[in-house]
């Protein structure tokens, strides 16, 4: 196995695409063939030790990208290298160097205690016993596994199982860890345990982390870099701050008044977003005006009881990002040809 030079990208894709042919009903016996571009030309470079949040609305192509990076799906076109390897052609070699947690697809033996799964995985990944024991010891302490190591996986709670999955993905000391929605469905405590663990793992600096999530708190806590995709394309790649700047997400000033005003005040550079509590609470957005401009402007027209300044919310930014119209030619569905193919019962188009 060739070691990648330290400064070489761990993940590199160029114009990566994945198209699916789906058949949709077009009359009683007719099926229309459509080509759907799930991933539509993604360029991505990730260097060693980075923690990348990969987000996008449902169906944006997140999981499809992850599956092409891990060798599960063959790309339709484009170039992809992970740890210097071609994921599909060199799938088994790559598998020794990456860890994967697909929330819905367990790596654990359903009927066996966690401890047995971990032991079997040591053989599957050919990990020297001492290394394996050291990593397991660390995971046991940090993920608090001791209480359920001897319970069959089928009897574990989702939170316990997810901690088990994380351990299973790390026991061979992967260079890259791919996580597909690692906190989905977890309660607050498990979610924090998983997040805290991943944060420490990332802070150590030698594991590259790529995670998809719908929970933006995961991203804020874990990832300095955020890649947002929509309709199979990258619409943002950079820090969270850069996202706020680029999409003009704004601080808000929330002002509580003694008495409602007869006329809503007009402040230059700070539009009124909404009025609450029968006009006693006003919410302004700081566009070109600063928060102090807003406060000063308000104080001239009303008696202020309280002032709060609210930092921009990443949820809101991302929601706006998803709604931003994409260029016309990136429409995900392209009608290619309509053929009247024989009806195939149950041929699912997933």
């Amino acid at each position: 196995m060739t070691a990648t030079p330290p400064d070489a990208p761990v993940i590199e894709t160029r114009d990566l695409r994945k198209e699916f042919v789906v058949r949709v009903r077009a009359g009683r016996f007719r099926r229309a063939k459509r080509v759907v571009g799930a991933v539509d030309g993604i360029d991505l470079t990730v260097r060693r030790g980075e923690m990348v949040g990969y987000i996008g609305p449902n169906g944006a192509g997140k999981s499809t990208t992850l599956k092409m990076l891990t060798g599960v799906l063959s790309p339709s076109s484009g170039r992809v290298r992970v740890c210097g390897l071609a994921p599909v052609a060199q799938r088994t070699r790559l598998a020794l160097r990456i860890g994967v947690v697909f929330g819905q697809r367990s790596q654990l033996w359903w009927d066996l205690p966690l401890r047995d799964s971990f032991d079997l995985l040591r053989h599957v990944y050919r990990v020297p016993a001492a290394e394996h024991a050291a990593r397991l010891r660390r995971c046991r302490a940090e993920l608090d596994l001791d209480g359920f190591l001897d319970v069959p996986v089928r009897q574990l709670s989702l939170g316990q199982r997810m901690r088990g999955e994380l351990t299973a993905a790390l026991l061979h000391g992967p260079e890259v860890l791919f996580l597909d929605e690692p906190t989905i469905g977890l309660d607050v405590v498990s979610r924090q345990a998983v997040r805290g663990f991943l944060a420490e793992l990332g802070a150590a600096g030698d594991t590259t982390l790529v995670l998809t999530t719908h929970d933006l708190a995961d991203i804020e806590r874990l990832c300095r870099r955020l890649v947002v995709i929509d309709h199979g394309r990258v619409v943002h790649d950079g820090s969270i701050e850069a996202l706020h700047t680029r999409y003009g997400s704004r601080r808000q000033v929330v002002a509580d008044l003694d008495e409602p005003l007869a006329e809503p005040p007009v402040l230059p550079g700070a539009p009124l977003l909404r009025t609450e509590a029968d006009g006693r609470r006003l919410v302004f957005a700081c566009e070109s005006a600063t928060a102090s401009d807003v406060v000063a402007g308000l104080a001239r027209v009303a008696a202020l009881r309280d002032i709060a300044i609210v930092e921009p919310d990443i949820e809101e930014v991302v929601a706006r990002l998803y709604r931003t119209p994409t260029p016309v030619d990136s429409g995900a569905v392209q009608e290619c040809s309509i053929t009247s193919t024989a009806k195939v019962p149950g041929a699912s188009a997933s």
Binding site: K67, T70, G71, V72, R91, T92, R93, A95, L96, I98, V100, F102, Q104, R105, S106, Q107, V124, Y125, R126, S348
Partner: peptide, 15 residues
């Protein structure tokens, strides 16, 4: 194939 469980098989370092 139907459930997508083959994903978990394909990410292991074995045939």
């Amino acid at each position: 194939v139907r459930t997508g469980l083959l994903d978990a098989v394909l990410v292991r370092p074995l045939g």
